[in-house]
């Protein structure tokens, strides 16, 4: 996320450079602009640790909350899908509604994350966070209503 908000031109250039060095490319570009000292070693553990630290350090509280919730949804969806694979899809509508409840909720949450992320502020100037959240709540209500009805 960090390099994206520099300016549009930088984003484009970085995406163009990705094919040549896919794993390491984002790291140097971001670290060279912000913190030249921390990205000295290129081994995988450091890179992951660096990303994690940066995420913990720079991400706003609400975005972290959104990410936690999305991770939770992914776990629930995976569990349901595994159950379907192991046990079979007998009440298929039940599987569909259970699985799509998580998928739909994930999509709605992702939309909320995009709209409320302070780094995307320039793209959503005319949508307030309150408006985005209200949309999210309404969409979620509709989704839950449909899922509960569909599972019968």
């Amino acid at each position: 996320m960090a390099p994206k908000n520099r300016n549009p031109a930088a984003t484009q250039s970085s995406t163009q450079t990705v094919p040549s060095t896919p794993a390491a490319a984002p790291k140097p570009s971001s670290s060279s602009t912000k913190k030249p000292g921390s990205g000295g070693a290129y081994d995988a553990q450091d890179i992951v640790l660096g990303i994690w630290n940066k995420y913990v350090e720079k991400t706003p509280q609400r975005v972290k909350l959104l990410d936690t919730f999305m991770g939770f949804l992914v776990v629930v969806a995976v569990l349901q899908f595994l159950y379907c694979i192991i046990v079979g899809n007998f009440p298929f509508n039940a599987f569909l509604s259970g699985f799509s409840a998580t998928v739909g909720q994930f999509v709605l949450t992702a939309s909320l994350r995009i709209q409320t992320n302070p780094e995307n502020k320039s793209e959503f100037e005319n949508i307030s966070h309150e408006r985005a959240f209200a949309d999210f709540v309404l969409g979620s209500f509709l989704l839950h209503f449909f899922c509960v009805n569909f599972i019968n």
Binding site: V76, L79, F90, S97
Partner: peptide
């Protein structure tokens, strides 16, 4: 057999 998916929905809602 549907209990797991019912639980899936309500866990999602509770979450």
């Amino acid at each position: 057999a549907a209990w797991v998916w019912i639980a899936g929905i309500w866990v999602t809602v509770a979450g």
